[in-house]
Computed example of a mutant assay.
Amino acid sequence: MPFNEQDLIGRVYEYFLRIYAAAGTKEDGEFYTPASAVKLISELIEPYSGTVYDPCCGSGGMFVQSMKFVEQHNGNKKEISVLGQEKNPSTWRLCKMNLAVRGISSNLGEKADSTFTNDLHKDKKVDYIMANPPFNLKNWRGKDELKDDPRFQGYGEGVIPPVSNANYAWITHIISKLDVNHGVAGFLLSNGALNADGDEYEIRKSIIEKDLVEAIIVLPRDMFYTTDISVTLWIINMNKKAGNSKNGQLLKDRSQKTLFIDLRNWNSNIEVTNIDKGRKKKKVALTDNQIKKVKSIYDNWRIEGNLYEDIPELCKSATLEDIKNSDYNLAPSQYIEFVDHDLTIDYVSKMNELQKSIGKVLSDERETELKVERAFENLGYIIK
Rank of each mutant, 00 (worst) to 15 (best):
C56F: 07
N191F: 03
V12M: 08
L251I: 07
I216S: 13
A285Y: 01
E337A: 14
M67S: 12
Y53L: 05
G198W: 01
D211R: 00
L343F: 09
S206K: 03
E43V: 01
I336E: 11
Y298R: 05
I160V: 15
P312V: 00
S357E: 13
S42L: 07
A112L: 05
K316A: 13
L94M: 11
N181V: 01
G61N: 01
R18W: 00
N139V: 02
I345P: 13
R102M: 06
T344N: 15
P34D: 06
N237V: 05
N88F: 06
W301P: 12
D253C: 11
F69A: 05
Q355G: 08
A375K: 02
T226N: 11
D342R: 04
N244E: 15
A193V: 04
I229D: 04
P162K: 03
E5T: 09
L379Y: 12
K283Q: 13
G192D: 08
A185L: 07
I45V: 15
R18I: 06
G24W: 00
A185C: 13
Y225A: 07
S81L: 00
L233Q: 08
L362W: 02
T117S: 15
K277N: 15
I358M: 14
I236H: 09
N191R: 01
G60W: 00
A242F: 03
A215G: 13
S296M: 09
W92S: 01
P55D: 04
D276Y: 09
K138W: 06
E337C: 06
I297F: 11
K280C: 12
H341M: 04
I236F: 14
H341P: 02
G75H: 01
A169N: 01
D113Y: 01
E321F: 06
A112P: 12
R93D: 11
K295L: 14
G75Q: 00
R11T: 11
S190R: 00
I311F: 10
E145H: 06
V231D: 06
